[in-house]
């Protein structure tokens, strides 16, 4: 049964309103930015009043927070974790290392920009970003969700060949399961 346009708008509004107020962040500290996450989640900068809390496994999480640089060994695990999360899912790039490589631009083990391997919704810049900057990044993600523009899970699914060829250039020993959604 298809909804007509007006009822679809009401359904979308309620759905997006509920999604933006309960964002579960996966408990995975991938790089040096993980030191500002305990400060954001505890009593002074309280992120739980926005509905943000931690989740233990990828099947229960909405947001993947890539805190800082990624080495090639971690990239393989992050791709596997991202493919285990269920839609709708969002990726936030934290720190200047996800934007253009940061201060490790000439290192043989860290990647130089996250956009080529995973679709990113919001970037937060800084080294480290303050807890107030982290919360403002989440507020921007909430605005994108409300406007209906945060569906990068579909974008990953449609451009899977493009992302896979980029990932396979870096990760040489590719023994991972196929993406099945």
């Amino acid at each position: 049964m298809e909804n007509d346009k007006n009822s679809q708008k009401i359904v979308d509004y309620i759905q997006n309103f509920a999604r933006k107020h309960s964002l579960f962040v996966l408990a995975y500290g991938t790089g040096c930015g993980a030191i500002e996450i305990p400060a954001t989640m505890t009593s002074r900068y309280d992120a739980e009043r926005f509905g943000i809390r931690g989740a233990a496994t990828p099947r229960q999480a909405d947001v993947l927070l890539i805190t800082g640089y990624l080495s090639t060994k971690t990239l393989k695990r992050v791709i596997r974790v991202y493919e285990q999360m269920q839609e709708p899912k969002y990726v936030i790039g934290f720190g200047s290392c996800t934007i253009n490589g940061g201060m490790y631009y000439d290192s043989y083990n860290t990647i130089n920009g996250l956009d080529q391997y995973l679709p990113v919704d919001v970037y937060i810049n800084g080294c480290m970003p303050r807890p107030e900057a982290v919360i403002s990044g989440f507020v921007k993600l909430q605005e994108l969700i409300m406007a209906g523009k945060a569906n990068n899970g579909e974008k990953y699914r449609e451009n899977l060949e493009h992302y896979r060829s980029n990932q396979k250039k870096i990760i040489k020993n590719w023994k991972m399961p196929d993406y099945n959604w």
Binding site: N100, S107, Y108, N112, N166, I170
Partner: peptide, 8 residues
Amino acid sequence: AAETFFTR
């Protein structure tokens, strides 16, 4: 690093 990773 310049050859393997994509540089902006």
